[in-house]
Design a protein around this nucleic acid. Sequence first.
DNA 1: TTGTACGCGTTATCAT
DNA 2: ATGATAACGCGTACAA
Lengths: 341, 341
Amino acid sequence: MTSIQDVADDAGVSIGTVSNVLNRPDQVRPSTRAKVEASIGRLRYVRNESARLLRAGSSKTLAYVVLDAANPFFTDVARGIDQVCREQDLILFLCNTDQDAAREDRYLELLAEQRVRGILITAANYDNPRLHAIRGMGIPVVLVDRAHGPKDWCCVGVQDVDGGHIAIAHLIAQGHRRIAFAGGPMELTQVRDRHQGALRAARAGGLAATWPTLMITDGLTVPDGRRVGERLLRIPNARRPTAVFCANDLIALGVLQHLIQHGVDVPGDMAIIGYDDIEFAAAAAVPLTSVAQPRHQLGRAAAEMLLEEAQQGVHHAHQEKLYAPELVARASTANRRHTGS
Amino acid sequence: MTSIQDVADDAGVSIGTVSNVLNRPDQVRPSTRAKVEASIGRLRYVRNESARLLRAGSSKTLAYVVLDAANPFFTDVARGIDQVCREQDLILFLCNTDQDAAREDRYLELLAEQRVRGILITAANYDNPRLHAIRGMGIPVVLVDRAHGPKDWCCVGVQDVDGGHIAIAHLIAQGHRRIAFAGGPMELTQVRDRHQGALRAARAGGLAATWPTLMITDGLTVPDGRRVGERLLRIPNARRPTAVFCANDLIALGVLQHLIQHGVDVPGDMAIIGYDDIEFAAAAAVPLTSVAQPRHQLGRAAAEMLLEEAQQGVHHAHQEKLYAPELVARASTANRRHTGS
DNA sequence: TTGTACGCGTTATCAT
DNA sequence: ATGATAACGCGTACAA
């Protein structure tokens, strides 16, 4: 592997000059610069980022730690982050935890060892002490998709409580009285918040007696949704909910798929509303009503906030950036004449 | 930031001993080890991976460079890779190029600077000289999702030519004579191969006169698919294809969505077949027939191949691992009585 | 433009 | 068998 020394020898200059060509080209006489650049090309010299980082202290990598890298919601957020990275010539680590706190912890450890410039995280466990320790090391952390973080963290998110409220209010307006909530695990803030908002809306709508029909899931994937579908169908028709609010679109798509396969009419027999408004929601068997988040914007804002914090260093005022969720009504909750239970 | 020296001082030992505790704990007396570990905990020492890499030469990171990180196909492949990474305690860079050769090149440069242990790539441009240069540096590269790479590269993939053949043969068997091919750009090997297989099947089926109705797209995303839908509808009914083979499922879903919105009966008026069999294909408005690839297995095999090459070093025999595509027939190509044109 | 100290962990060598 | 010591890897930045 050729080093900066090899280049210097080849070009007949000192390594200091080569370094200048790489980092401050304008401070080198053009003719010298040309010589050095020719040597770099000929020897196929590639800068060693470890050595650079070791000395310069500033890494070129950000990391985004997510619950599920296969969830289109997160890939869209990642796209927003990636855009900022490109503008700043940074590189993005995408780390998938699958909602496993242990994996998440291990990733955080590795990222700390890498001395990444900053970490964006949608965490399975926000109480992980390592998260604090990492900030203690001077690595900025921004919480993504979290509305009400503790005040001493930078975070971006949407008002998930409002989102849950919107969803249930919509279903009630459509005439539903027996409504289920599907999602989990309840350890996830997003799920808790959406559920809480749903609960409030249900109370406000006078559904206290029949609410909630809780369907807690292990995760937020399509297969989890299919299992919810199975559980729903096991409920005797007379008591079965007429609508289900799913904590995200993957669950909703799973439910939808299972119900349709078993001849249930959506929304006639069962209305479904999801959350995130991923691209596939509109293309579903029955176009899915969903609560939309500004995914791309979320990612951009988070990345910008992170870089700002990285620049400002210690004396940085943590800030919170909140967006409002929005209902996108489609066929899966189309109006019906429901006669109550 | 606390260094290994701080830990050594705190524990009253030398840095060599601390290093031994970290890397060869069994060679250190338990009592000493305990002391050192206590200091590490107290001082919140975190190993500096740059320094480690600089000396030890072996990185803990792999990178997967993909055309579209939001495409479920790639996230599923990534999941297979990730699994291997976890087993080996490695960390995975996911790099999204959006089919842009310039971005891809920049990513490769950054990854080379990082001295990653290896690179898995589904490339926009396989002729990029940097790809060769990187291998010249001793960084192994495995081509993912590529069947017929040059013989001096490790690669895993499926027989895309066969896949294209299967798709068209299926449509012909269903009675279709006017068939369109949708996908692009043609620079992508996958698209070219699938198209070529389709062409062969069409010839074999005696469709030479009416084939192809080519609908080249800029990319392989859902919006690209919607635009194909628009173009299809602009064709006068008498000449309009009765079936369309899409180079991937995202295109197919986009086409499907657009056609349904405009009252076209699928598969009655237009059959659709996709490629990849992503999870959302089965949950689509009309469940999508698709050509399945062993996505997860593809990822695993690629990662294992990469690590093998990394271990064996220079004298390594490049290998090719090919899988067979499989037709998954669903409603979007359900049988019809087509009377030809 | 050059020389050189420095950042930090690893490993080989040497001492006990 | 343990522990200590020092050379080493490579690029950066500053003084000369």
